[in-house]
Design a protein around this nucleic acid. Structure first.
Ligand code: SF4
Ligand code: SF4
Lengths: 165, 165
DNA sequence: ATATATAGGACAATTATAGTCCTATATGGC
DNA sequence: GCCATATAGGACTATAATTGTCCTATATAT
């Protein structure tokens, strides 16, 4: 459906809150109260983010989560990768190669890969820092249609066979 | 899950086939056989595309579907809009406003809207023509991070209230 | 010890998607 | 007129993904 999952969305809210004081430690309870999302849900998101080492957990009393890196070094793509269950990909074949039965003779696959790659790069270039920036003065991605350099046909073939994002 | 639905994907395959001879009439049976997808499924896709006036149907014997417009004037965004059930949107609020309970106090919403808009524009600028072009010599979208012009705060507020893609 | 935290995984309910099928209608050729 | 061929529209089932919650184990500060 071309949408990030709600959990990933929550992830961005949670991280956006934490990015306001990047060195602070926040408990799940604390965050849940402040963003108005149920505690178990926030907990799930944070645990997932911790596994991807986007936040660092401190157990025990006075524990909580803190950002592992500075907001400007955490890309939106990394957040999506951490929380989404399926690998990133606009089409089935760009997400997991080998599943689609059309893959061998598909005439749109190579170009879908390019489109996928463009979107992917856009999200890699956007950081948590951008996400929490005041909109009126932030930078953001803008898309331009540009001629692509010729591509080595051999390399393309490789991509087509093993290929993935 | 940040993926177009399989049906939309089939839509691009079907249209890619039709784009090879943009004036030809193709029956669903014919297309199904040539792209190796089950007839009922291809039929469903074509009926949906016909409703969106991307293809034009001719009933009766010797009937079938033909492209309503030239491939270079059919954008990928239009194809997605035609077939996806949910409106286009990377987040819930960019797809359908008013559903998300965080919407009123969400600090990432405005920026998600921008990201959404960027992706949207990229897909509007890509056409069926691009999709069927030989990859080695085609154009495609590439993403650049550029400073955005300052935005009128009043207009932003409007967006925030009624806002949607 | 105990209160406070996270870790990890299991779980059911809901929602979205995929694919098929049935009946109605339109058209061309005989 | 009749029939074969096509699409129109919607109903339907099965599957898959997602959501949100809960339970038990473990770690830490006081
Ligand atoms: S191979 Fe073609 S049909 Fe299969 S997922 Fe990729 S683009 Fe879609
Ligand atoms: S309002 Fe915020 S939380 Fe709700 S969908 Fe939009 S971005 Fe996600």
């Amino acid at each position: 459906m071309l949408r990030i999952s709600k959990l990933t969305d929550y992830g961005t809210i949670v991280l956006a809150l934490m990015a306001r004081d990047p060195l602070e430690i926040y408990s799940a309870t604390d965050i849940a109260r402040r963003i108005n999302v149920a505690l178990p849900t926030v907990g799930k998101v944070l645990k997932t983010l911790a596994r991807a080492d986007i936040v660092t957990a401190t157990r025990g009393s006075h524990g909580g989560y803190s950002l592992s890196r500075l907001p400007s070094t955490i890309s939106i793509a990394q957040i999506i990768d951490a929380i989404e269950e399926q690998p990133f990909g606009l089409t089935e074949c760009t997400s997991i190669a080998g599943l689609c039965m059309q893959e061998n003779h598909c005439r749109v696959r190579a170009n879908w890969m390019r489109i996928n790659q463009s979107v992917r790069i856009a999200l890699e270039n956007l950081t948590l820092g951008d996400l929490v920036a005041e909109t009126v003065q932030s930078t953001a991605t803008q898309i331009q249609k540009v001629p692509l350099p010729k591509i080595d046909a051999q390399k393309l073939e490789e991509n087509h066979e093993h290929g993935c994002s």
